[in-house]
Lab assay of single mutants.
Amino acid sequence: KLPPGWEKRMFRSNGTVYYFNHITNASQFERPSG
C-alpha cells in the first residue's frame, strides 16, 4: 500500500508507470516508501 496521497499512474504515450501525490502535487518514478 502506498503512503497517504500517493497513487500509481501511467503515461498513455509510452506506458511508463509513475507515482503522483495529489496532496503535494509531487510526482516520481520511484515507488514512495512509507
Rank of each mutant, 00 (worst) to 15 (best):
Y19H: 06
R31L: 09
W6R: 01
W6E: 01
L2S: 03
G34H: 12
N25P: 02
S27I: 15
Y18F: 08
G34M: 12
K8G: 04
K1H: 13
K8F: 10
W6I: 01
P32D: 01
S33K: 10
E30K: 05
G15P: 01
P3Q: 03
S33Q: 11
R9F: 08
Q28E: 03
G34D: 12
S13E: 12
Q28I: 05
K8I: 14
R9N: 03
F29W: 11
Y19A: 00
S33L: 11
F11W: 10
P4A: 12
H22V: 15
F11N: 15
N25Y: 08
Q28H: 05
K1L: 13
S27N: 03
K1E: 15
G5C: 10
K8A: 11
T24G: 04
S13W: 13
R9T: 01
K1G: 11
S13K: 12
P3F: 01
P3S: 01
Q28G: 04
F11H: 12
T24Y: 04
S33D: 12
G15K: 05
G34C: 06
P4K: 07
T16W: 12
N25W: 07
Y18R: 03
Q28D: 00
A26F: 07
T16P: 09
H22P: 08
N25Q: 13
A26W: 07
S33G: 14
K8L: 13
K8P: 03
W6T: 04
P32L: 01
G15H: 11
F20M: 01
G5I: 02
P4F: 11
L2R: 03
H22Y: 15
K8Y: 08
Y18G: 03
R12G: 15
K8R: 13
N14Y: 09
V17E: 09
T24A: 02
F11V: 11
T16I: 15
Y19S: 00
R12N: 14
Y19N: 00
G15T: 06
F20T: 04
V17A: 09
P3H: 00
N14P: 04
R31I: 12
G15Q: 06
S27E: 15
N21Q: 04
R31E: 09
L2P: 15
M10N: 06
R31Q: 06
K1I: 12
Y18I: 06
G34Y: 14
A26E: 15
R12K: 13
M10F: 14
P4H: 08
K1Y: 12
F20W: 10
S13P: 11
S13N: 11
S33M: 13
Q28R: 04
T16D: 05
N14E: 08
E7M: 07
N21V: 06
T24F: 06
K1N: 14
K1P: 15
F29M: 08
G5L: 02
R12I: 13
G5V: 01
I23H: 10
A26M: 14
G5P: 08
N21K: 00
M10Q: 10
N21I: 11
S33I: 11
E7R: 08
G34I: 12
I23V: 10
R31H: 11
V17L: 03
R31A: 08
F29N: 05
P32K: 02
R9G: 00
E30A: 05
T24E: 02
F20K: 01
F29G: 02
W6V: 04
Y18V: 02
N25I: 05
V17H: 07
H22W: 14
L2Q: 02
E30V: 06
A26Y: 04
Y18M: 04
E7A: 08
V17K: 05
N21H: 06
M10T: 12
F11E: 09
Y19D: 01
A26V: 15
Q28A: 07
G15D: 05
P32T: 01
G5K: 00
P3T: 01
F29V: 08
V17I: 13
E7W: 08
K1M: 10
T24V: 03
K8H: 04
E7T: 11
A26Q: 15
E7Q: 10
G5Q: 02
P32Y: 05
N25E: 08
G34N: 12
R31F: 14
Y19P: 02
A26G: 05
S33R: 13
R9Q: 03
I23P: 03
F20G: 00
P32Q: 03
R31D: 10
W6D: 02
M10D: 00
R9W: 03
I23L: 10
E30Q: 10
G15R: 06
L2V: 07
T24D: 07
E7D: 04
A26N: 08
E7G: 09
K8E: 12
Y18H: 01
S13G: 12
W6Y: 01
H22E: 07
M10W: 13
R12L: 14
H22L: 15
